[in-house]
Design a binder for these strands. Structure first.
Lengths: 348, 348
DNA sequence: ATGAAAGCGCTAACAT
DNA sequence: ATGTTAGCGCTTTCAT
């Protein structure tokens, strides 16, 4: 059979083997592979047959080498065991695949050294572009490294470096709406748990929080704004501390993707009941928020859109689009559920 | 400055540019790159300098071309917005990175055509190995396709094709323990919601379910075993149907990674209370299970270990290990929380 | 210790 | 319409 004839050891079959089997030159094989017009249907058939016989798969490594593009895009992010991130990556993969790209994934654990190392390796792999979150927008070394990249980069929920495209979330409006809602329910001691202001999502949430207070002529108590990290553990620690402090908040805003679990743990272990003892708003929606009893009021946006837009921005650059940095900001919506109660109704 | 001298357009810098800048042959540059002994410290320094000056990054595409390996591994899975899958992929990426590999990710949505297409593309990218779940262990075409791959494949929670390495989970024991526990609480009408038996996790759960019944000399009612899919939606639909059937179960086992959300939705919308009206066990642990009030009793295993073992098996093959298929089965543990009550205590 | 050169698989420019 | 060939960046063998 032709397989043993032209590819005796069952080894890797190359375009050369196909050419030999079809009795044509390799250039011709390449032509049929790329639907190039100038090839007779007779020859085309023979080549296609040989390809099937030999189970030939074009070598994209060699193509990349020759063409200077790899048709790969990397996504660099903190932790995809957080389902919000998974949703973004999922959506990104979907549109990338449908456009002929393959996704490389790198997890950074929000650590700068990892981010730098990982981007270096991706550069060596000659990915065509990168979609990423960074652990800090203030770090010069990080910013320089990204800026000096020779390939387009799209930021996820970051807006520095300014010269890059980015898709961001309107956390400011989301958090303002959440705060306003709590204020209207009579809460005047609201705690905001979020990450470090060196990251946009935290900055924006804080700004929204303060804006809502300002809109009613007040100011939040700075000690009720906790800005140490986006992790569930941080949420747990700070919530625990606040709950046992003398000025215990009557409401919490969990300003991060994985902060609600930590906050709930703290509330549970204090034996508090939502919403009777304490009101809660999640700064990101999740199954957990939706399915708790009572369900948790949440600031919602579409992670799928976030992923999709990021890819669109990137692909547009890869297709040669020049011009100023593009920013896409996604709306947020306050989904009111059962986790907040008016203060007047509160027992004690 | 040397940058403009040797790399005038600020374009891609190659080993040739480095060689020129250092005044040596490209072979020599390659030698210092690979810590090859035979290079004088004098020359080595000059080369290293040039590399720094030019910000040279070796081209892994060219290396792959030359060496025939890409140092990339793909993970092919259903949906990483499910946090259980994210945990596996996270862990896999971590050990891959630490061993010098880069992860490619492909999402299949559990659809056969996608699995086939995606594996073809990954083959073209010449990934060194693949870690994957398949949508069916009975599909001949799928099995053949995987078997004919020229690279090592490690299955995640599947055991067919038999000739492949795999890491599996002891769902049988986990589900048996869950069932036994419910039986001991007095439940005799337990529903099992799980996926199609063409996938190992479903088969094993059913087997465990039946084994636990058999151990007390009974048999489950076949109509209480629903085996149509692993999705939250499926869980919701079947749970809803069962809850409004004449022989409403007194307990549910949600046998899948994302089935608990669906089940809880159904229970909520029926206005039922856990555990008073209905007992629930999750077939996989999650934040949701942990943080519900009451917390949901769950069958737990380590997704991180699953990901890590899968990579270890794969790397061992990549390092040349021959021999029979290796199987690693991870233990499960029934974590008892507050979502199950004895039947005698049930109101009604 | 270092240089020179072949060749990995492919595409595209150039011949015919 | 088809064949031939240079060259993408690299590693490694063979000289020297």
């Amino acid at each position: 059979m032709s397989k043993s004839k032209y590819n005796p050891n069952g080894e890797k079959v190359s375009i050369r083997d196909v050419a030999r089997a079809a009795g044509v030159a390799i250039g011709t094989v390449s032509r049929v592979l790329h639907d190039n017009v100038s090839v007779s249907s007779n020859v085309r058939e023979r080549v296609l047959d040989a390809i099937r016989q030999l189970k030939y798969e074009p070598n994209k490594i060699a193509q990349s080498m020759r063409l200077g593009v790899t048709h790969t895009v990397a996504c660099v992010t903190r932790d995809i065991s957080i389902s919000g991130f998974g949703t973004i990556v999922n959506a990104a993969e979907d549109v990338l695949r449908s456009r002929g790209y393959t996704l490389l994934l790198a997890i950074t654990d929000e650590r700068k050294e990892r981010e730098i190392e990982v981007v270096r390796v991706l550069t060596q792999h000659r990915v065509d572009g990168i979609i990423m979150t960074t652990s800090s927008e203030e770090d010069i070394e990080l910013a320089d490294m990204i800026r000096n990249l020779r390939i387009p980069v799209v930021l996820l929920d970051r807006d520095i470096p300014r010269e890059l495209d980015a898709v961001t979330i309107d956390h400011r409006r989301g958090t303002a709406a959440a705060t306003e809602y709590l204020l209207r329910l009579g809460h005047d001691n609201i705690a905001l748990l979020t990450g470090r202001p060196s990251m946009r999502p935290a900055r924006e949430r804080i700004a929204g929080f303060e804006a809502a207070y300002a809109a009613v002529g007040r100011q939040p108590n700075p000690s009720q704004i906790r800005v140490g990290g986006f992790s569930a553990d941080y949420g747990f620690r700070e919530a625990s501390a606040l709950l046992s402090s003398s000025s215990r908040p009557t409401a919490f805003i969990a300003g991060g993707m994985s902060m609600l679990p930590g906050l709930l743990r703290a509330i549970n272990s204090n034996g508090l009941k939502i919403p009777d003892d304490i009101s809660v708003i999640a700064g990101a929606d999740s199954d957990l928020a939706l399915l708790m009893a009572p369900a948790v009021t949440a600031v919602r946006w579409s992670g799928s859109e976030e992923g999709r837009f990021a890819v669109e921005l990137l692909l547009s650059r890869l297709e040669g689009h020049k011009g100023d940095p593009k920013r896409v900001m996604l709306d947020t919506e306050l989904v009111i559920r059962g986790s907040c109660a008016p203060t007047t109704k509160r027992r004690k």
